[in-house]
Design a protein around this nucleic acid. Structure first.
Lengths: 190, 190
DNA sequence: CAATGAGTAGACAGATCTGTCTGTTCGTTG
DNA sequence: CAACGAACAGACAGATCTGTCTACTCATTG
């Protein structure tokens, strides 16, 4: 009677894939459980078997995005010769993301805006941000900056600004502008 | 029997004041009608008489914030001698806001993240952003920039980045850093 | 074959939210 | 005084959301 399962991936994977699409596109609060299980082609009970709660599903969705982003950046940086190039490649990575039609800004910034303070969702967002800053600081140190923390803060400021503008205004040139400003900051390090 | 109305301001004002506090502090989707009317000390029917819907109340809340911000900036800029000082005073205004204990980031960015695409809330956010950019562009033109639009975009990028960092990380020094970078951009105009 | 475990469909409870409606109080004004 | 409008309290409808629960299917495995 019922349609057979076409997608042979386990329920957990299909749920995460559906969550990734829907949560990112429309926001974690506007998307309900029912739409996720419908898109995933999964029973509600399976969701609660796998994740236990919507909150935990959101956390897993964010963690998955964070890890994917880490991989993407590591791949890209591995092709760079110098720390400075690695820093700029972070902006190149953003430019690539922004160019996609389904770009909706930083997933963590968006989730953070919707999350209850102190929730595990908020914690996941903060961890991702901390990693970003640490990455910039590490690269700034390798590049020989006299104040790596300060430079890292400046770089992230540019990164955040570009992300906001690219998303809200649909203005991809903001990323280019941010990269150019970052490049100027790096020239000063010499 | 019932307690008399202590606050003599009309219901509309009290509703807007309550909305301003709650929506800004916790987000437009997490705050329900009931909590607003309770804080305002107003009957539910009054809310719907005044605004017609929650959506319209949110729109009015954002409009009120936008107008208050315009006034604040105009006041501050009136005390500045040069266009460059006026531009930097925008960052000073943000520094002042960030220093407040109840700072929760840009109200428009937050509302925008929670709003449905195409909603009147989204439109209000876009209008506010457009005004910001136009202000920077106008001042950049007065300052004699060769590419006022480009400079304005850079300035807003710094502004957005500082706002995000100050809010999410609770890091007020981001505003100082953004102001310093803006100052460098302006020196280059000279 | 029998047992197990993963998955499915869908009803249901309980909470919450927006918006409507009824009926009342009270100050102002004609 | 009488009429009116603005505000009040609160019940109610209808939708939606999270999370639980029952009962069924089916493939794998001992």
């Amino acid at each position: 009677m019922k349609s057979p399962v076409q997608d042979r991936r386990p329920a957990r994977e299909r749920l995460l894939a559906a969550a990734d699409e829907l949560f990112y596109e429309e926001g974690i609060n506007l998307v309900g459980i029912d739409r996720i299980i419908e898109r995933a082609g999964v029973a509600k009970a399976s969701l609660y078997d796998c994740f236990g709660s919507k909150e935990e599903l959101i956390r897993s969705y964010l963690q998955q995005r964070h890890e994917a982003r880490q991989l993407r950046l590591r791949d890209r940086m591995a092709k760079c010769a110098t720390p400075k190039e690695k820093i700029l490649s972070v902006f190149d990575s953003m430019a690539e993301a922004v160019a996609r039609a389904d770009y909706r800004g930083c997933a963590f910034a968006r989730a953070s805006a919707e999350a209850r303070p102190g929730s595990s969702v908020k914690v996941a967002c903060d961890e991702s941000r901390a990693w970003n800053l640490a990455l910039f600081a590490e690269l700034a140190r390798e590049a020989g900056a006299s104040d790596p923390q300060g430079l890292a803060q400046q770089l992230r400021l540019l990164y955040d600004g570009a992300s906001v503008s690219a998303h809200v205004d649909g203005n991809a040139s903001a990323v280019t502008a941010a990269r150019a400003m970052a490049s100027i900051l790096l020239e000063a390090v010499a």
